[in-house]
Design a protein around this nucleic acid. Structure first.
Lengths: 208, 208
DNA sequence: TCTTGATTTGACCGAACGGTCAAACAAACG
DNA sequence: CGTTTGTTTGACCGTTCGGTCAAATCAAGA
C-alpha cells in the first residue's frame, strides 16, 4: 500500500533538497538542458550522493512531474457545479493565478515539458486531463443552457484561463521587464476578474 | 550598410537550412538542450560543414533570435491610434493568433528563451519592447478617456493578448490532446473575438 | 583546360555529460 | 563499547558535447 514505508530524517531532508534543486534546474533549462551537477550543487550534495537517493536524472524528473500532476488539476477539480456560475469560474481563475504566483517553478517545469512535446506526460494530457476538462465543460454548458452565464465555448474558456494565469509564471521575466519593478499579480488578478465578468455576466446586455 | 554583401546560392541555401534546423531543435529543447548534431542532421549537413557557415552554436541561436525579434513586434506596431478602437485591438489579437498558427516554432523559441530567464534578449524586453508597449498603452488609455472602449489596464490587456494567442503555439500539444484531432485556431479566433468584444464594447452596459 | 576559391568531411580534441564503484565515514542501537 | 546499517565521496568509465583542422572535393571563371 505505502510506496515509501520508512524514511529517515536524512532521507527526507535530502530527497526534498534534490527535488527542489531539480525543480530549479529543470524549470529553467528543461530536462535536456539541466545537468546533474547543477542539481547536485543546488541541493548541496555531491553528484554520487545525489544518485544514492535517486537512481537517475530521469527518476528525479519523473518524480517532479508526478508530484506536480497530483496537485496541478486541483483548482479545476474544485469547480463546483452547484455554486454560483460566475463566481465559480472567477474563483477558478484566481486559484490558478495564485498557483502561478506561489509555484512559478512548477508552472515553468510544466511549460518546458509541453514545449518539448510532452514526452513524459502526453498520456496524462490525452487521458485524465481531457476527461476532467470535458466533464467541467459539460457543467459550464449547463450553466449556459440555464442562462446563468453568457454562451461561449467552454473548452476555449478553460484554455484562456490556463493561458492568462500561467503566463504570469512562465513569462515572469518579460512581464516584469515591461512593467518595471512592481508585483504583477495584483493587477493581473483585477484584470482577469474584469475580463471574465464582462464575458460571462448576462446582466449587462440581455435583460436590460 | 549591407551586412551580407554577396551570398552564393549554396550559402543562401545552406544558411537557410541551418537556421530552419536550428529553429526545430532550439524551439523544442531550448538553447542548452539542443545539440549541434541535431541541427546538422535536421539541416542535412555534417557538423563541421555546419560550423563552416556559422562560427558557433551561439551564433545560430543569436541569428534566430535576431530574425525573430525583427518581426515579432510588427503586429503591435501596426496598432493604429486613428483606427476604430475595438476593431484595432481585435485585429491585433487576430494577427498575433495567425502568427502562432503560421510560426509556432518561432513562438516556442521565444517561450524557451523567456523560460530560461531571457539571457539573450533581456535587454530588448526592458528596452524597445517596454517602450513600444508603453506607447501603445498611451494610445489605449486615450481611447478609454474618450469613452470609445471600456476602461481597463492597457498593460494587462496587452499581456492577455500575448498569453491567449501564444498559448496555441506554445501549448499546442496540450490543446490538441484535450480537444482531439481538430484544428484549434478557428475556435480560438472566435473565442478571442467574443472575449475582447465583451470586455471593450461600451454599447452593452454604459449608455443604455 | 587549368587554376583558384568555395565547400565538404573524417579524424580528432578537451571538456562536460550521466552514471558506477569501492572505500571511507557517520549514525543508531544493542 | 562494538557492530551494523545508512550515508558520503574521490576516482573513474564510456559517451556526448561544442569545436578544430588538414586534407579532399567541388564549382566556376580565365
Amino acid at each position: 500500500m505505502n510506496d515509501e514505508p520508512q524514511l529517515t530524517r536524512i532521507q527526507t531532508r535530502n530527497r526534498a533538497a534534490i527535488l527542489s534543486g531539480g525543480l530549479d534546474a529543470f524549470s529553467i533549462a528543461g530536462f535536456r538542458g539541466a545537468t546533474l551537477d547543477q542539481i547536485a550543487e543546488a541541493a548541496g550534495l555531491s553528484k554520487p550522493n545525489l544518485l544514492y537517493y535517486f537512481p537517475s536524472k530521469d527518476a528525479i524528473y519523473t518524480a517532479l512531474l508526478e508530484h506536480l500532476l497530483a496537485t496541478w488539476l486541483d483548482p479545476l477539480h474544485a469547480l463546483d457545479a452547484d455554486g454560483d456560475p460566475v463566481e465559480e469560474i472567477l474563483a477558478y481563475a484566481q486559484r490558478k493565478l495564485v498557483m502561478s504566483r506561489d509555484y512559478p517553478r512548477e508552472s515553468r517545469l510544466f511549460a518546458n515539458e509541453i514545449l518539448a512535446g510532452a514526452p513524459q506526460i502526453g498520456a496524462v494530457l490525452a487521458g485524465p486531463l481531457r476527461e476532467l476538462v470535458d466533464e467541467k465543460a459539460v457543467v459550464m454548458r449547463g450553466w449556459m443552457d440555464a442562462g446563468k452565464i453568457r454562451r461561449t465555448d467552454p473548452h476555449y474558456l478553460i484554455f484562456s484561463i490556463w493561458a492568462l494565469t500561467q503566463h504570469y509564471a512562465d513569462f515572469d521575466v518579460q512581464v516584469r521587464a515591461v512593467l518595471g519593478q512592481a508585483d504583477p499579480f495584483e493587477g493581473a488578478g483585477r484584470f482577469i476578474d474584469q475580463l471574465y465578468r464582462s464575458l460571462l455576466d448576462t446582466a449587462h446586455d440581455d435583460h436590460l
